[in-house]
Nucleic acid binder design. Structure first.
Lengths: 296, 296
DNA sequence: TTTCGTTACGTTAGTCGTAAAGATT
DNA sequence: AATCTTTACGACTAACGTAACGAAA
């Protein structure tokens, strides 16, 4: 027994001595920390913390346990990190994915620069669908993904921003907006916004496809779609609109879709993502190479 | 990352070098070991084992990882055990439960003997319903339960057998079997067998309330009930029959229920149960005391 | 043909967040 | 009254077993 999440909750709480900060640090709710610690104490049969709503302190048993657990757990995480570093290191294969086909171009250049620095580490480049990004990173299916940010997901690190571009609205060629030079966020209240798949967390979806205009007016929802081709096909068929980055104008020109700048929308930002505990030397090196490639 | 079950699967497989034995040792299916290791290797990006259907060997990376993880994990488990021992030890409270009221008598005597050996460790005795035994042990709500065995549940240890007694069939006072000196297992095919709650695992329920006679004839099922009082009430109301230990004849005599020995049924055996990783000094001491109390 | 590891799939335990309640200063 | 922890509850992830499959001797 003694699950990983219990161990980490105990160690973090013993250091923070505050449920709220512990929860924040571990990116979970305070309720979860409370219940995790309570269950652990029941199982061990010993109170590990004295707490009131004002003060949290370790008991002697908690102090002793912490003194043993902290170094042992550090040793385990260090060993795992070392295994990852050497295994996927200079002789392994770095798995890199991109979410939107055109942005993949940047990664090809990055891979060339990367190869000069770590010639023995191969790079494999593939496309990921939006809903695959999180499970693929979590399961180690890929090491790095180039995706839009912000990407507020626990356990996933956002690397340096590589590209910033204007945000355009993809609309059907025959749509009234298609003839305008620009639109505004407020205009979205009068069109249907296509949706990303429900597997994506709320924070990510809201950033890509807002549900309200800046003044709070709801934006109607259209159908959901899993891939960019599906989305653009739906746009072309007049089923709704979808915000995209400016590069699609060049890479995804289609007769049935027009792209209109959204005057007051925040820019589209692209960055590399990786598993927080998967930050190996090749990952860091690839991130450096990608920054160089983006600056060219 | 690196969950407890992954860590233990890795360590066990590195020692056994055999998926089947590893699964058996950890009390899970071989399929689970295979998938757990595969996922771990994907996340680390390194093969940890070379395997064919004939031979399993560690890779160099697996060997190195094992050398670090084994001592660190041992240190963690030892620290947890030490915390449990001292916390619930000589100055704590041992939580003991029994499933069937009359068998609780034995525990009262055991608690007296226990107190002579560990005078500073209090004993609290309570009754548990059949469906509570597993969650109560798992969550540390109780440390020891006196229950019928066999009790084939992962993570729960069966201690020494304390009592063996004849198995009787509880039948309604007016039932034809009530006038017989004995019945046989084959006779069960012609009555409704009351059922224990579905939360109980298959192995435990089948032992208490068989679904077939020895020659494979199905035994009809009656309603399920959660407590012994409910069960006996249903028996008295003619809703079905239920196998019990001989002690109920003395402790649960009721006008509406008769108890008839089942000539060819295995004896009812009682033993202490505890969480496999909750075997603290007080637990071992209480088990010794219970053996002495049973021998009186 | 037997033994052993892997893949596929449906089930369920247990972790999760939200929200409301309770406690302490 | 404000701040912090605990309890309650419904949702969903992911670990689980069964069973069918595939590979090696």
């Amino acid at each position: 027994m003694l699950e990983r999440h219990e161990l980490e909750a105990f160690l973090a709480l013993a250091e923070e001595l505050h449920f709220g900060r512990t929860a924040e640090r571990l990116r979970v709710s305070t309720a979860r920390i409370s219940q995790t610690i309570a269950k652990l104490e029941r199982r061990l049969g010993v109170p590990l913390f004295e707490r009131s709503s004002r003060r949290v302190r370790t008991t002697p048993a908690g102090r002793d346990l912490y003194a043993e657990l902290r170094p042992a757990w550090d040793r385990i995480t260090a060993a795992v990190r070392h295994t990852m570093d050497t295994g996927r290191g200079r002789a392994g294969t770095l798995e890199v994915a991109f979410v939107d086909a055109p942005t993949g171009q940047l990664l090809v250049r990055a891979a060339e620069l990367f190869r000069e620095r770590l010639p023995d580490c191969a790079v494999r480049l593939r496309e990921a669908q939006p809903a695959q990004v999180i499970p693929w990173l979590r399961e180690g299916e890929v090491d790095i993904v180039l995706d839009m940010v912000p990407f507020p997901v626990a356990g996933i690190t956002t690397g340096p921003e590589l590209v910033t571009e204007a945000r355009l609205l993809a609309v059907a060629a025959g749509h009234p907006y298609a003839r305008r030079a620009t639109v505004e966020l407020a205009d979205l209240a009068r069109v249907d916004m296509l949706r990303l798949p429900p597997e994506l967390p709320e924070g990510v979806r809201e950033n890509r496809t807002p549900t309200t205009t800046p003044d709070g007016t709801p934006i109607p929802s259209g159908p959901a779609a899993a891939t960019y081709n599906e989305l653009l096909t739906l746009v072309g068929a007049g089923r709704g609109v979808f915000p995209v980055g400016a590069h699609v104008r060049r890479y995804n020109a289609r007769p049935d879709v027009e792209y209109v700048p959204i005057r007051d929308a925040p820019a589209v930002r692209w960055a590399l993502l990786w598993r927080a505990d998967g930050e190996t030397e090749p990952v860091r090196e690839f991130a450096r190479a990608a920054v160089l490639a983006a600056g060219e």
